[in-house]
Nucleic acid binder design. Structure first.
Lengths: 223, 223
DNA sequence: CGTGCTCTTGAGAAATCTCAAGCCCCGTGG
DNA sequence: CCACGGGGCTTGAGATTTCTCAAGAGCACG
């Protein structure tokens, strides 16, 4: 796991946002755009959970460092995803940009207040929360499976979320994937190799995965 | 069996229920009481998620049956806990009574409508959701650990939630625990035995666990 | 061309699972 | 009162999966 560089956030005035292409979701109108460099922290565990975030571009991981030093990655977020409400008053995970990323951040309070009289916004927030819970559930299902099923499940999920076609561009390292799946990096790597050898995927580079046999992929994924 | 409300939602003094369930939490005023016998279904996966539930007494498990037939238990609920919002419009788990149980059920819609003009209720619902997310997170942390850490973590959690003193009355079977922890029943059993042999716990009966060495227990639990 | 990452591969060690058997508790019926 | 049977739990031993430790390969960058 890598140590992080200095916290280089560039704060763009709200006016910048007016030109941005992405106005969708509950964050479009009132959010503040923020950029984060690779491996920089967006928020830390136990910090007051003052904001919610929607990812514009890039990729984000949330994680906890366990007592014994292992890192547990809770979720990966891709453009469009909303994150930051795995929390009561304080975050219970940290969040980092996996690569150069931009988010829209919105004060929770402001959002809650608005939601209390905008039915639609309230609905969107609950939907986002339900999605979060569903993702946790799927993540749990992965963790009780074999190494192969975990990796396959991860790939299926990424394919669904990140791409329309058969090639996935993975923003995260093997170590990230290992920490997400509760495996060692070696086991993840071996499993990729094995999937390639059986013709299920092709690895154009280590971060670029082509799904060559969707049927078999789905068969190998238990969930 | 203990019928105590460890109702994290309620700011009422925790003395209230005893005998007739009515009164407390977001469910007291408008809920309908329902009873379920051991091993009966409260709701099924993919059913429309029309209600939220608060457990009055007994114990509940939520679970999914995976494609390969294994059962993944997502959560256990104890008296006072609120469940049923691991869902958008449809449940994505099933829920069953582990033993004779009583719940208060409330229509989601009704609750949402009320929440939209009662700030306090809205707050309680979000708190309950945040708690749910935190539990998922802890569950994930367990699943990436060793068998011993999983069992210890489970016991610590049950102790915190179910009892004030050092003896836990487990309502669920070894198989339930195994399906919650992603282990086999044999491994769970062996781990209990081993914890007993090292003096960390005592098994008065297989369902009654006495914590004899809290310090060591905490040390063995990683998270 | 080195240097520093990240990723892959190999081989033995350790944890967990699988299959199989036996035990315990308890309710039932002779 | 005791034998019987079933469910839930425990224990054992070998098979399998995953981890650990160690080394090598691929690649980007100065």
């Amino acid at each position: 796991m890598q140590t992080q560089a200095t916290l280089s956030l560039s704060h763009h005035p709200a006016s910048v946002f007016r030109g941005q292409p992405r106005a969708e979701g509950p964050f479009g109108m009132i959010g503040t755009p923020m950029r984060y460099a690779r491996n920089t922290e967006i928020y830390g565990e136990a910090e007051p959970a003052e904001y919610l975030y929607q990812l514009v571009f890039g990729a984000v991981r949330t994680y906890k460092i366990l007592d014994d030093g292992r890192r547990q990655i809770g979720s990966f977020y891709l453009p469009g995803d909303i994150f930051g409400f795995e929390a009561g008053d304080a975050h219970n995970s940290s969040a980092e940009a996996i690569c150069e990323s931009q988010v829209m951040m919105v004060k929770r309070n402001a959002l809650m207040v608005r939601a209390s009289h905008e039915r639609d916004l309230a609905r969107q927030l609950w939907d986002a929360t339900a999605l979060e819970l569903r993702r946790f559930q799927e993540h749990l299902a992965l963790l009780i499976s074999s190494a192969e099923e975990r990796v396959v499940g991860f790939l299926i999920d990424m394919a669904r979320r990140a791409t329309k076609n058969a090639t996935i561009e993975l923003p995260m390292s093997r170590q990230d994937i290992a920490d997400y799946l509760g495996l060692t990096i070696e086991t993840v790597s071996r499993t990729f190799t094995q999937l390639e050898q059986t013709g299920v995927i092709a690895l154009r580079t280590s971060r670029r995965v082509e799904l060559r046999n969707r049927a078999m992929l789905n068969r190998l994924g238990a969930s």
